[in-house]
Computed example of a mutant assay.
Amino acid sequence: MGAGRQASSPATVLSKKQAKKEEERLTRELQLVTKERNELRERFIYVTEGARNKRPYYTPNPFYEKLKLKEKEIMSFLHTLEKENIEARQNFQELKNEINFYSNLHNRLLMQKNLMNKKLVKLKQENKEAHADWTIIQQYLVDLNFNDKDEQEEVHSILQGQQHQDAESVARAEISTAQEEGLLKNELPLQKP
Rank of each mutant, 00 (worst) to 15 (best):
A7L: 10
A7N: 06
S8Y: 04
S8N: 07
R28D: 09
L32W: 04
T34V: 12
K35D: 08
N38P: 01
R41H: 13
F44Q: 03
F44N: 00
V47T: 14
T48Y: 01
T48V: 15
N53Q: 08
N53S: 11
R55M: 13
Y58A: 10
P60F: 04
Y64M: 01
Y64S: 02
L67C: 15
K72C: 06
E73S: 01
L78A: 09
H79V: 07
A88C: 02
R89D: 11
R89V: 09
Q90W: 13
Q90D: 10
E94P: 00
L95R: 03
N100P: 01
Y102W: 05
N104C: 08
N104Y: 00
L105A: 04
L110M: 02
Q112N: 08
L115H: 05
M116I: 15
V121S: 04
K122Y: 02
E126P: 09
E126L: 02
N127M: 01
K128S: 09
E129A: 11
H131S: 13
A132L: 09
A132T: 14
T135D: 05
I136G: 00
I137N: 00
Q138M: 11
Q138D: 05
Y140F: 01
D143C: 00
N145G: 06
N145F: 04
N147L: 09
D148M: 08
D150L: 07
E151H: 14
V155W: 00
V155T: 07
V155M: 02
Q160V: 07
Q165Y: 12
D166Q: 13
A167D: 05
E168L: 11
E174I: 07
Q179I: 14
Q179R: 05
L183D: 11
L184A: 09
K185T: 14
L188Y: 01
L188A: 07
P189T: 05
P189C: 00
K192E: 04
K192W: 03
P193M: 00
